[in-house]
């Protein structure tokens, strides 16, 4: 297993009346895209601000590529990009000038080409001479993403990056994130819209009231799920299949001539046995899948009380 690029250990952030983040630990290796999920006030943004160095923390440590935030903040700044949930831009600068500001600040080599590349990556090339103040919220969001990508950081913290994007923008954001994952970057991303995350996150961390409720790979978390909604389809009409399913004491079983939907509660092995039973009895199963979004299912069953 690859050495973790981002290591958060026992992080605690105190606010006057509340412990905003409590004993949070997380380790992400190159290529990990981790969805940070939780209801409002769970501590997602505070966690990201603390990891980036914008929020003081009471206890714990943050390391990026072996460099600890408390001891080597400058090294960390070169390796970490943070995109906040709002869009800080200089309204009277053009998008190109805005990116040039940060390219200079990060001493980006071959500055002009890199700026053009980032504008292209975020579909803002035709807006290079537009003033930041004239951009829509979605475009500003893309501009801030371009700014975050400009110094090519190893670790990216993206706080609600898709909140202002239109559907097309969200698809393109997903593509960018897939590119980053393939390039071996670590991405920690928070979002209210779980379906946005499920396509490309290989890990998830679920927070509630400042605490990490669950974390791990999507597969690991999926295995921990006690209840899942399943769909099964078969090729030809069968009387056997409904009988087998009915005998399995499934909940909310809804039968149709060529399939069924049901809720399953129990160990994953029991579910596997049910599928084997169907096949060995001669049912020609052509589809067998969990319904709904994986992350959504994981989140709903994680113990987080309040929906986002």
């Amino acid at each position: 297993m690859a050495e973790p690029l981002l290591v958060i250990e026992h992080l605690r952030v105190d606010f006057p009346e509340v412990v905003a983040v409590n004993d949070l630990s997380l380790a992400l290796a190159a290529g990990d895209v981790c969805g940070l999920i939780g209801p409002n006030g769970a501590g997602k943004t505070t966690t990201m601000r603390a990891v980036s160095g914008l929020q003081e923390f009471t206890r714990g440590s943050v390391r990026v590529d072996g460099h600890e935030l408390a001891r080597e903040p400058d090294e960390l700044k070169r390796r970490l990009g943070f995109m906040p949930d709002f869009c800080p831009t200089y309204d009277r600068l053009t998008t190109w000038e805005f990116l040039e500001h940060y390219a200079r600040a990060f001493s980006v080599p071959d500055r002009n080409k890199r700026i053009d590349d980032c504008l292209q990556l975020t579909w803002l090339t035709d807006k290079r001479d537009a003033f930041c103040g004239q951009l829509s919220r979605g475009m500003k969001q893309r501009l801030v993403l371009a700014k975050t990508l400009l110094p090519d950081p190893q670790v990216l913290l993206l706080d609600e990056p898709a909140s202002g994007l239109d559907p097309l923008g969200r698809i393109e954001l997903r593509n960018i994130l897939l590119q980053l994952r393939d390039a071996g970057k670590v991405v920690l991303i928070s979002s209210h819209i779980l379906s946005e995350l499920s396509g490309f996150c290989n890990k998830a961390a679920i927070m509630e009231r400042g605490r990490m409720v669950q974390s791990g790979t999507i597969a690991e978390l999926g295995q921990q799920m006690k209840r899942r909604r399943m769909s099964v389809k078969w090729r030809t009409e069968s009387t056997l299949a409904p009988a087998i399913l009915a005998a399995a004491s499934l909940k909310n079983l809804q039968l149709s001539p060529l399939g069924a939907i049901f809720d399953f509660e129990g160990e994953p092995d029991t579910l596997d046995d049910l599928l084997i039973n169907l096949i060995t009895q001669g049912v020609r199963v052509c589809e067998w899948r969990a319904l709904g979004d994986d992350l959504e299912q994981i989140f709903l069953q994680s113990g987080a009380k309040e929906l986002m």
């Binding site: 980036s52 160095g53 700044k77 070169r78 906040p84 709002f86 800080p88 940060y102 990060f106």
Partner: peptide
């Protein structure tokens, strides 16, 4: 207020 101060602080400047 606009968050630009923090944004500049997060650069290696």
């Amino acid at each position: 207020k606009a968050g630009l101060w923090d944004s500049n602080r997060l650069t290696p400047l």
